[in-house]
């Protein structure tokens, strides 16, 4: 017999996770529309791998398998990995990434609720460091039919690979700007590939995928599954940094809209940095956490060797979460003047 409260709100981890998956659908639809069915294959592959890996390790850890499989958290991780990786990577890379995320980044740290790092971002970072070539297999919009895509995923050699893949908008711009002696500016680089790599205001196709994520993310906000602090602080900081740099040196720094819709910013803002387990939890802490990720992301994008920096930003800020949370405890009822200071100085423990 349990104790009060006897009334419970009909809420569950499962319903939270399923709604997160549903919110990914608009972005996914745009993805399929512009870049073909390959992403669906990768999502199916990642999901199956995640469920199998999760079941296996739950069994090894002697935990109730069906209960935990049913929570849906492994599926969310799988989808986010599939949506972060280039859709034309060979199948084993996806499997490896998902296994690393589920087994190492999640369960070796204690399983659901215990992982300090975002599992999907751990997997992404490991893959981009280990397989930089394969991790550039982004599809050119509308370039390949499904059979060719299937061939690439299955690992078979494909002729004319260069025509089938395309640099992401961020990568294309970075390469153009960094190529010594080219003298390219942001405007000239973009106009050179307008209509193929670049679209209306960011990447062709990708801007619509990002728009889909934005739509799903707004729905998650409306559903109160995520709070506004994380996406707003992330997107605002990114906009501010990019805007300032572009204003100072428009030749070499892309404008904010390009940063918001050109890479993984929308996916990150609403689906990745909002992973509650590894994010900061206090209202002020969330603002700091998200702003920090945006800062690191923008620095890596603008000055670093990697095309996108979100994964590294997330991981670096993940490890700062305990400190951020501790330093930003909100004042308690009736202690609005003093609670904060009491806490920072630490009580007996």
């Amino acid at each position: 017999m349990h104790n009060s409260p006897y009334l419970l709100k009909p809420a569950s981890v499962q319903s939270v996770m399923l709604r997160v998956l549903a919110a990914l659908l608009p972005g996914l639809a745009a993805y399929v529309g512009f870049f073909g069915m390959a992403i669906l294959v990768q999502i199916a592959l990642a999901s199956a791998t995640a469920l199998a890996a999760e079941a296996l390790i739950l069994k090894l850890r002697d935990k109730p398998i069906l209960l935990f499989l049913g929570d849906g958290s492994a599926l969310v991780t799988a989808w986010l990995i599939a949506l972060s990786l280039p859709p034309l990577v060979p199948w084993w890379l996806t499997v490896l990434a998902v296994v690393l995320a589920i087994v190492v980044a999640k369960h070796l740290y204690g399983g659901l609720g215990q992982n300090p790092f975002n599992p999907a971002m751990v997997a992404f970072a490991l893959m981009i460091v280990a397989y930089p070539q394969l991790m550039s297999r982004w599809p050119a919009p509308g370039a390949a039919d499904f059979a060719t895509q299937w061939q690439m995923i299955s690992g078979a050699a494909v002729a004319g690979l260069d025509a089938l893949t395309s640099a992401t908008p961020l990568d294309a711009l970075r390469t153009a700007l960094h190529t010594a002696g080219s003298g390219a500016s942001v405007a000239s680089a973009i106009s050179a590939a307008q209509g193929s790599t670049f679209g209306q205001f960011a990447g062709r196709g990708w801007e619509w995928v990002a728009g889909g994520y934005l739509l799903g993310g707004l729905w998650l906000l409306q559903q109160r599954i995520i709070s506004w602090h994380l996406p707003l602080a992330f997107l605002a900081t990114l906009t501010l940094l990019a805007g300032m740099a572009h204003w100072i040196d428009g030749q070499h720094f892309a404008e904010p809209l390009f940063h918001l819709f050109g890479g993984g910013a929308m996916l990150a803002a609403f689906f990745i940095i909002t992973d509650p387990v590894s994010a900061a939890t206090t209202p002020r802490g969330k603002l700091i956490f998200a702003a920090g990720i945006a800062l690191i992301t923008w620095i890596i994008r603008s000055f670093g060797a990697y095309p996108d920096g979100i994964a590294f930003g997330v991981l670096l800020m993940n490890i700062a979460v305990p400190l951020i949370d501790r330093a930003t405890q909100p004042p308690v009822f009736g202690h609005k003047d003093s609670a904060h200071r009491d806490f920072d100085h630490g009580g007996p423990s």
């Binding site: 569950s12 981890v13 939270v16 209960l67 609720g113 509650p276 387990v277």
Partner: peptide, 15 residues
């Protein structure tokens, strides 16, 4: 007042 569903780990959602 049905018995609550099985206890799951805290996911720090902050609700």
């Amino acid at each position: 007042f049905p018995p609550p569903p099985p206890e799951m780990p805290c996911i720090r959602c902050g609700d």
